[in-house]
Design a binder for these strands. Structure first.
Lengths: 255, 255
DNA sequence: CTCGCCAAGTTGTATATACAGCTTAGACCA
DNA sequence: TGGTCTAAGCTGTATATACAACTTGGCGAG
């Protein structure tokens, strides 16, 4: 019962978010002005202002001083992350991709997972463990957690046909992503799944994505160090792309 | 020359950020309370509150109701994956940065270096080898090559005072950048310079940048796997972010 | 009809005030 | 000494008010 009372500014935010997610408000539509919210929700203008300002910072809205507040249209850019979808990356190399689902279950978030997803310990999350192979050779072990209420039908998906990444972009528009890359020694299980030599290092990518202002998913992506590297390309806004950068051939590092 | 007055809450934010990046405030240190800011900066409490609240949302601070506001000690995010000046990164964590130049010489490009820089074998390049330390602990071995005619005064620079990255941004406007990340076993020399355990993996970043249509520099950045991870933060285009100028500065790519 | 100007509406910021809830240090008592 | 209670200080939120800057639509003069 208790249902501890949410702050008023949060109630205003929820109202707007609700209308957007129900489709009542479409991108570029006008959102109630601060003064209209003052009347309809009986809050002070500063409270309405905070709600709209935070929703703007979170990427939902777009404000124009003197004009109004509008629903932002954020397109889930396909090339936002260079390595968003391992299947596409492999296909781009002209190789064959296959995936094997090792685990697919409903769990309770604990420890690192709960912290990463900003949920209470014990909250329902889906856990998916998938091995991706390039021309039959294991290239990525995907260990992914998804907040359950974002993806009610997660257990019904066949992740050997649609990758978890592709599924997630479909259900939750990408708003923000965070990526942490580190080198590590894999444990025995990871080494076995990825068919790695003893002592071979592992490239580990921790990735979180946000949608609608909340973390949606947290994934640990393990790659065998001898067969995989992460590439990124950057062009500052407004500069014409000159020569497409051909990949540096890698050799022994002697210095 | 009215240099376009910043909002008061932004001035407060700048003050705090400045103290952190100059090292006057260390992680877990206590930040002035709202009421102290009211007195010292002659702002209202709501303005101080907004400044501290936004810095908290941005990950700089950590607040405990009833206790106080403190410098956050994780501070990983906020930089794009196409990363940054190692000195600034360390400063943002509130730690001390130092650099030691191991080598600084004029060489002839050969093998991988010549190919990466798109120059003929034997072309003049400057070679710089620098160890960067965070609070005295080696955190990056920077092995960098610069095309000579871009940087005639490269040998005169003191890279323990200005980082190679900062120097290069000064002489060559960034046009394009490429980055390759991999996990590897370091050789003995690298392991020694970075004070790494036997068998500890290494995070290696290969980075190339272009200016005026030509490759300028090629660097191999070795990081000890146990002490370093690369973090990236993405926001899709069209997602309006906080428009303050210092955010743009943070996201600017470093050479 | 067109141009320019003005008024109304909207966002952006700033302040003063108020109260609730939490934390901590120190006073006080057994 | 050790436990308890209280007061001070802190953050979190909410409101009323005020002014500045910007946008837009409409009105009136030419």
């Amino acid at each position: 019962m208790s249902a501890l009372q949410k702050p008023r500014y949060q109630q205003v935010k929820d109202l707007i978010i609700g209308r957007i997610s129900r489709g009542e408000l479409q991108p570029a539509d006008r959102v109630p002005s601060e003064n209209e919210l003052v009347e309809s929700m009986k809050v002070s203008r500063m409270t309405a202002n905070r709600a709209l300002r935070e929703l703007t910072d979170e990427g939902y809205l777009h404000r124009v001083a003197g004009s109004g507040t509008f629903v932002a249209d954020f397109r889930a850019g396909s090339h936002v992350l260079e390595v968003q979808n391992i299947a596409e990356e492999i296909a781009a190399r002209g190789h064959g991709h296959s995936a094997e689902t090792l685990r697919q279950s409903l769990q309770h978030a604990r420890g690192e997972v709960a912290r990463a997803l900003h949920v209470e310990q014990g909250t329902d999350v889906f856990h998916v463990l998938v091995v991706h192979r390039e021309n039959g050779l294991p290239i990525q072990l995907e260990d992914r957690y998804v907040v359950a209420d974002f993806a009610p039908d997660c257990l019904d998906q066949d992740f050997s046909r649609i990758t978890p990444s592709a599924y997630l972009t479909a259900i939750a528009p990408l708003q923000e992503a965070e990526q942490v890359v580190r080198a590590a020694q894999p444990n025995a299980a990871v080494r076995k799944h990825l068919n790695m030599r003893d002592g071979e290092p592992c490239l580990v990518v921790l990735r979180r994505t946000w949608s609608r202002g909340r973390p949606v998913t947290f994934g640990r992506l393990h790659h065998p160090g001898s067969r995989y590297e992460l590439t990124g390309h950057y062009t500052p806004p407004g500069t014409p792309r000159s020569t497409s950068a051909d990949v540096v051939e890698l050799e022994k590092l002697e210095q």
